[in-house]
Design a protein around this nucleic acid. Structure first.
Length: 701
RNA sequence: GCCGAAGUGGCGGAAUGGUAGACGCGGUGGAUUCAAAAUCCACUAUCAGCAAUGAUGUGAGAGUUCGAGUCUCUCCUUCGGCACCA
């Protein structure tokens, strides 16, 4: 058929993208089925998770969505393959950046988070990410942090039994002390003094409390903080820089920083060191991250066979306002009690700025202090150490998540099926989340010991100058601008086409035209479609079958760049000789493309899908993923590489699985090739069917 | 210093031990156009040659192999982690 006969209108990304965005929202096509419904439909779960972001105030640059686009492509394919995909998004909004933003802009952190979340969602919504927004969570929501506090209390009420090799109730340990003292208690501890049962009975309450602190998995102890006298505040490591003389100074102002020992809460992660190390073996993570964790845990066995670990316990407190309150209080006698009614909500304060003492701003709230509450709050990593559980049942008021939901979504693989995020969390979030997960396994809340069985890490995208994108260098590219000018489909394709998913790559807006052209070529490829009475060109047909396999395996391995290039080759094939393709075969191509360019794919799908009289076709994203089939009549000649002494000298074409003698015959038949071989004495021939033949020639003299 | 990853055209990159440079960007020439944009066609690693073609070539050097970008060893460079922080 001649080009231009079926005149497609011009590709208008704005029109197409706003149309489908509304349509998808309205029909809630990305909604995850509830457990009961999914089970009755016998739908298998697939949990595809992004590391949830910190909604900082500056907004997204073009590198941020890279991981989200990758996981989205994966989720979309799985959805089309019939899985009940859980692909949620939420916000990790406690912690320093939100607090800093609030201080700088003189607004309440809660307000700052609201504003930032809005900006963030607006930016994300135009990229075409298939989240089920009805499961959105926010770590700063009291309904959420109620359960963060609950987990804290479970840790507080547990010790690590070294014989059972798991966490056990502290009550059991107290019973042991009452029966036999601590001499043969199999408990992980830094308690040095030995006592018998009678001594234990005679200890004061306060003494008992202090001893138990040496056993609890969440415990209070003296530890060091960075104290800045001039700023009158405790600083996080991130806020400290080296000055030109190598002294540690505050990033803000450059004032001296000293170490100060204060009493604060910690987590006995060291009790889990061995299990955290062992668990790494079964994880489908990139080796470099496993190696980093391994080094961090740092197991060493000295000559006497004593096992030590480099890893320290983790401080679980910040002298800051914007975090989860620790759900404990101290009575007049100094005895610690649990807060019975959770959540213990963060009170409103007049000033959330540092107080000038080595304690949190909560110390300035009279009623809070009077009640005996902790003035420190939990660190940033608290809420992110279990959020992936909450997504399975985000509105549950009775427990962290209902067991049926947890078991269903964490069922087969025992964890999130695909976790996508930055490699920079190797020793922070990824370690803490594994620690809490193992603890929750010990107390029977989850079945598996590992939360993230499979993980992929996106590399950073730098500026054109190769530097990190930042306002400071003036090299920030805003995704909104790119979407406006080129469209979201182009942004997605280009981001994926840049290079390997996990490499650090520079952004180059000049190059984006190639991806835009690709989408336009897809649009024009509609002109090659013929009706079903005719047949698709066989070259196209064969390539299409290979393409199905190629795209599926590339998506599974996160090799999106090569997937895009094989789409381009397919178009080249159609264009070069103006080949024809049937309606059905073209739809195969469009379906394969749908996860990458969801908007244009749905638009084209509607044109070519067989609509019934009653209704138009559903979204392409709810259609079935193509399956490759064996083409019976596919008997192609094989191109055999001909080498002489390992050097390429030409090719011969032979039927599949030809034997050596036949291939040698064909080679000798070719005058040019024969000359190379007869140049010397043939001593050996290496033949690999369908691939290569190499003649080893000894040249006389 | 220790541990890990990576070095391929002008650029981003591709390549189960088997045609190095797919695909894209950029560039050169041409078609179309009053002109431009867009689109289409051809060429585009280096050297020699009018050309067919030949030689060289994946950070450097050795090795294994019929055959190495890919495997092994040594070195160089870059990036990440650790060492002073958690």
């Amino acid at each position: 058929m001649q080009k231009g006969k079926k005149n497609s209108p011009i590709y208008d990304h704005k029109k197409i993208e706003s149309k489908w965005q509304k349509d998808w929202d309205k029909n809630k096509i990305y909604k995850t089925l509830d457990t009961q419904k999914a089970k009755s439909k016998k739908k298998k779960p697939c949990y595809v998770l992004d590391m949830f972001p910190y909604p900082s105030g500056v907004g997204l640059h073009v590198g941020h969505p890279r991981g989200y686009i990758g996981s989205d492509i994966y989720a979309r394919m799985k959805r089309m393959q019939g899985y009940n995909v859980l692909h949620p998004m939420g916000y990790d909004a406690f912690g320093l950046p939100a607090e800093q933003y609030a201080i700088e802009h003189k607004i309440h952190p809660k307000k700052a988070v609201e504003i930032n979340v809005k900006t963030f969602e607006k930016q994300l919504s135009i990229i075409g990410l298939s989240y089920d927004w009805s499961r959105k969570i926010n770590t700063t929501d009291p309904a959420y942090y109620k359960w963060t506090q609950w987990i804290f209390l479970q840790l507080f009420n547990s010790y690590y039994d070294t014989k059972k090799n798991k966490a056990c109730p502290i009550k059991d340990l107290i019973k042991t002390f009452e029966k036999q003292g601590n001499k043969n208690a199999f408990a992980f501890s830094n308690q040095k003094d030995i006592f018998d049962k009678n001594e234990w009975k005679n200890f004061t309450e306060l003494k008992k409390q202090n001893i138990l602190m040496n056993y609890r998995l969440a415990y209070e102890a003296e530890s060091e903080v960075n104290w800045c006298v001039k700023l009158g505040t405790v600083l996080a490591n991130d806020e400290i820089v080296d000055d030109k003389d190598g002294n540690q100074v505050s990033e803000r102002g450059g004032y001296p920083v000293e170490k100060l020992k204060i009493n604060q809460w910690s987590m006995r992660i060291t009790a889990y060191a061995e299990r955290l190390l062992l668990g790494l073996k079964d994880l489908d993570w990139v080796d470099s991250i496993k190696e980093i964790q391994k080094n961090w845990i740092g197991k060493e066995i000295d000559l006497n066979g004593k096992i030590t670990f480099k890893m320290h316990d983790a401080i679980f407190a910040r002298q800051r306002y914007w975090g989860e309150p620790i759900p404990l209080y101290r009575d007049a006698n100094g005895i610690i009690h649990e807060v019975k009614k959770l959540p213990l909500e963060l009170p409103s304060v007049k000033s959330y700025e540092p107080t000038g003492r080595a304690e949190g701003p909560l110390a300035g709230v009279a009623s809070w202090v009077k009640s005996g509450y902790e003035t420190n709050t939990m660190p940033g990593w608290a809420g992110s150490s279990w959020y992936f559980l909450r997504f399975t049942d985000p509105k549950n008021k009775k427990e962290i998540a209902n067991k049926d939901n947890l078991d269903y979504f964490f069922g087969k693989s025992g964890g999130v099926d695909m976790y996508v995020g930055g490699a920079e969390h190797a020793t922070g979030h990824l370690l803490y989340a594994r620690f809490w997960h193992k603890f929750l396994q010990d107390i029977g809340r989850v079945k598996s010991g590992e939360p993230f069985k499979k993980m992929k890490n996106q590399g950073m995208i730098g500026g054109v100058d190769g530097r990190k994108m930042s306002k400071r260098w003036g090299n920030v590219v805003n995704p909104d601008e790119i979407v406006k000018v080129y469209g979201a489909d182009t942004l997605r394709v280009y981001t994926m086409f840049l290079g390997p998913f996990d490499s650090h790559l520079p952004w180059n807006t000049e190059n984006i035209m190639g991806s835009r052209r690709f989408i336009e070529r897809v649009w024009r490829a509609c002109n090659h479609v013929i009706n079903e009475k005719k047949k698709t060109n066989t070259d196209v047909l064969y390539y299409l079958q290979d393409l199905i396999k190629k795209i599926e395996s590339d998506i599974l391995e996160f090799k999106f760049n090569t997937a895009v290039s094989s789409f381009m080759i397919f178009l080249g094939l159609l264009e070069e000789k103006n080949y024809e393709i049937t309606n059905d075969d073209f739809l195969i191509f469009i379906k394969l493309l749908a996860p990458f360019a969801p908007y244009v794919a749905d638009e084209i799908y509607q044109k070519f899908s067989p609509n019934t009289k009653q209704q138009t076709a559903k979204s392409i994203h709810l259609s079935d993923w193509p399956k490759s089939k064996k083409l019976k009549d596919r008997k192609m000649l094989q191109k055999i590489i001909v080498q002489v002494n390992g050097k390429l000298r030409g090719f011969v074409f032979v039927p599949e699985f030809s034997d050596e003698a036949y291939v040698v015959g064909q080679v000798l038949h070719d005058e040019k090739l024969r000359n190379y071989i007869e140049h010397g004495v043939r001593t050996r021939t290496i033949y690999i069917p369908n691939k290569i033949i190499n003649f080893v020639i000894k040249i006389a003299n």
